[in-house]
Structure formats: C-alpha cells, structure tokens
Simulated scan of single mutants.
Amino acid sequence: MSSSAASRRERFHTEIAKRQGLLVPGAFNAMSARVIEDMGFGAVYLTGAGVTNMSFGLPDLGFIGLTDIAEHTARVRDAVELPLIVDADTGFGNALNVRQAVRTLERAGADAVQIEDQVMPKKCGHFAGKNVISASEMVGKIQAAVDAREDDHFLVIARTDAAAAHGIDEAIERAHRFVEAGADVLFIEAMETLADIERLPGLFEKPLLINIVVGGKTPVQDRDALAAIGYGIVLYANVALQGAVRGMQQAFSVLRERGRMEEDPNLVAPFSERQRLVQKPLFDSLDQRYKADD
C-alpha cells in the first residue's frame, strides 16, 4: 500500500467521523468520477446500480459480479484521487466471498466498501419485494470484511435493507449488531419518514450514511439539515446516471429533429471541455517528451 493511499484513507476516516454530512455523488464509470472530482466534491461512490444500468443496460437486480466492480474500481482509481467508496452489493456470496471481495477491491483502489444484508440476487434498495438474510449471517460477513482489510482505515460500511422487509425497529436492532461486529459506518436503506431520518443518528456511536435516490422512497432533505442532525455521509448515488440519461435524451432529440448538432453548451459539452476532462493536454506534453529524435 502506498503512503498516499494510507494518508487518503486516514483523512477520509477522520472526515466521516466528524458527522458533518459529507456530500458524495455516485459515479458509474471513470469519466463520471472525473467530473465529480472536477466539480469539487470530497469523495466518490462507485454505484453498482449505475454500473449495471449504464454498462449493461440492465436493472439493479444483482446482475454484476466481483470482476465487474473490481474492473470499474481500478479504472476510477486511475482517473481520480478522491476517496472512493465501492458498492459491493451482498459481497457476492457468503462470508468467504466477502473476504475475497474486500481483498480484491482494496487492492484495486477502494478506500471503503459497502456490504448489504439482502439475499442473493439482490435488488435496488428502492424496489419492492426485497428479502434479507439472517442478522447472524450478516454479522459473519462484516467480521470477514474487517478481518480481510489490510489497512485499518479502510472503511467497512454495513447496509441493512431490513426496514422494508421487517420494519424500522428490526433495521435498528441489526445496525447495533453490525457495530458490534466491527462496522465503521452504518447505512439503513430506504427510510420513508422524516421522523426516522431525524432520530437515527442519535441512536448510534458510529456515523451513518443516508442515501437519497431521486424519485425513490427516502424524502429529500437538504445536506445542511442532515449534517446538523449528525449524518456522516449524504449519498446521491444515482444523480450522475439520471442526469446523463436525461442529457442524452435531450441532445438526441434535437439531433433527430434538426438533422444536425451545433456546439450548443446547453445541450452538449464543448469539444475543448471534453478534451480537458480526459487530460488531453497532459498526453500532448508526454507525447512531445517521449517523441523520438529524427
């Protein structure tokens, strides 16, 4: 592990522990992660739903595996220096699979990994019909994740979807057990009432992540309000993919109707902006540096 990775993880761990509502957008590939970094956000979340939707054209129903998310993790890490949270779904199997997933994703460049307690194949947290494994099985997965990490500042984020399946009290009980198992951050998915949102941070010593899905089940709240009540992370996992889809639809609509497309900044990023984001000037300078003498 490089000293830069160690210091980045330590700083990220410290930042989350402040419970000041770090605003984290989700990325679905290296370019979306680069835009997140360029816009000045403090961390990036690699979303399994985003990878599934945007790379496979499929719904978030457990279609991706460890190899898929590890490849995307490595690409995002190569593109940005931000702390990187990786969505590892259920850990892709039992506790032994979780162990392998954590080892693989940490080596690929993740700074935190999120594991959930749904049965396989999992579903998007804001879909109906979710089921969860036993709390004791999930405890074993968390313990495996904690034991597998090489860096103590690598964060294990434990997510429970039990609120939808068994009610919020069961989700709270599970979260307490996850803390005892060694989880660094808690994630109670798909809360549906403002009362639950407001009371949860006060129930735990560990910081909480809240996931705001645009159009999903959880009521949208201002980041500052969530920071004031003690959330560590305010996640918008799918804004990038939903924004990208809308942008493509708008641009293609104009192209279809007009039969041509100008460099309209209201519809498409300028050519020069695209080259800036992919660091074309850097590669131009490297090309000159390594150019053979004639």
Rank of each mutant, 00 (worst) to 15 (best):
residue 223 R to Q: 15
residue 260 R to D: 10
residue 291 K to W: 09
residue 286 L to Q: 09
residue 227 A to D: 03
residue 182 G to E: 02
residue 255 L to H: 05
residue 54 M to S: 15
residue 52 T to H: 01
residue 210 I to Y: 05
residue 122 K to M: 02
residue 195 A to C: 10
residue 33 A to N: 05
residue 278 V to C: 15
residue 231 Y to Q: 02
residue 269 A to Y: 06
residue 150 E to P: 03
residue 214 V to I: 14
residue 65 G to L: 00
residue 249 Q to G: 04
residue 97 N to D: 07
residue 233 I to M: 13
residue 33 A to L: 02
residue 276 R to T: 03
residue 131 N to G: 13
residue 75 R to C: 11
residue 66 L to V: 07
residue 262 E to F: 01
residue 60 D to K: 08
residue 229 I to N: 00
residue 268 V to T: 09
residue 271 F to Y: 12
residue 100 Q to P: 08
residue 181 A to I: 06
residue 149 R to C: 07
residue 4 S to D: 14
residue 222 D to V: 03
residue 265 P to F: 09
residue 166 H to W: 12
residue 278 V to G: 04
residue 129 G to S: 07
residue 189 E to Q: 15
residue 150 E to I: 06
residue 189 E to F: 15
residue 53 N to Y: 15
residue 268 V to Y: 03
residue 142 I to G: 01
residue 192 E to W: 00
residue 285 S to C: 12
residue 219 P to S: 04
residue 24 V to R: 00
residue 199 R to T: 02
residue 183 A to T: 01
residue 237 A to T: 08
residue 263 E to V: 14
residue 179 V to F: 07
residue 103 R to F: 10
residue 176 H to I: 09
residue 270 P to L: 05
residue 249 Q to D: 08
residue 96 L to S: 04
residue 255 L to V: 06
residue 245 V to C: 10
residue 151 D to N: 06
residue 280 K to F: 15
residue 158 A to N: 04
residue 163 A to G: 12
residue 135 A to E: 13
residue 240 A to K: 04
residue 195 A to Y: 10
residue 245 V to G: 06
residue 167 G to Q: 11
residue 187 F to M: 09
residue 267 L to N: 04
residue 62 G to D: 09
residue 290 Y to E: 06
residue 198 E to I: 03
residue 286 L to W: 14
residue 40 G to F: 09
residue 221 Q to C: 14
residue 209 L to H: 05
residue 10 E to T: 14
residue 176 H to F: 11
residue 287 D to M: 12
residue 186 L to R: 06
residue 206 K to H: 04
residue 9 R to Y: 01
residue 59 P to N: 11
residue 241 L to N: 13
residue 184 D to K: 02
residue 53 N to D: 12
residue 59 P to W: 12
residue 155 L to E: 10
residue 194 L to C: 09
residue 202 G to M: 04
residue 69 I to R: 14
residue 15 E to H: 08
residue 34 R to P: 11
